[in-house]
Structures are given as structure tokens and as C-alpha cells.
Amino acid sequence: MPLSKDDVQKIAFLARIRVPEERLDAIAGELNGIIGWVEQLAEVETGDVEPMTSVVAMPAPLRDDVVTDGAIADKVTANAPDPIGPFYAVPKVVE
């Protein structure tokens, strides 16, 4: 089922990328080309194959519960656009 202009608009909003109205058709075309091409996977018999969750076959490493980080407000906000003091700032959110 090919993507419509509306689908593209919806996905673009999910991804928070503004796509100008006049580009929607072209992008729908490109995405449909790619989606149509990857759909060839449907012909692979996958039956009860487990989906790959990790190429690294080892247990998840766990760290100790000690405070080793933080107290670097200057560093974490060093690149912030338009901060307010030690805070990041964004256009006002109305809840």
C-alpha cells in the first residue's frame, strides 16, 4: 500500500520535520520507491526465526550504583541556544 501525501505529512510530524506542502508529492514518491524496494523481504521465509536483538553475544554489563558524574551544569549547557541562566529554554509550552 503506497504512502499518500497525508501519510507523509503524518510521518513528517512524528519525526518533527516540516515538509512544505509542495514537496509532499515528491517525497511520497521517493519514500514509496524505497518502501517498495525493501518490501522484497516479504519473500524471505522467516518462520520462527528469532529477530536479531544484538550482534554482540554477551550479558548486559551493569555498573555500580555510585555517583560518578554531574556537577557540570556549565558543560551540559555550554552549547545551549538561548538558555536562561542554568536552564535550557524553549518556546512556552501550554499544558
Binding site: D69, G70, A73, P86, F87
Partner: peptide, 19 residues
């Protein structure tokens, strides 16, 4: 991340690069 969970710290003082 290794940043502290304590309550009431200065703004963005308990934030690591990961957070």
C-alpha cells in the same frame, strides 16, 4: 548514568552528558 538522584539540587547540576 552516574549522575546523582538526590532531590532538590541546583538546576542542571545533577546532569551528566548522557542525561
Amino acid at each position: 548514568s552516574g549522575a546523582s538522584t538526590s532531590f532538590g539540587g541546583e538546576p542542571n547540576s545533577q546532569v551528566s552528558l548522557v542525561d
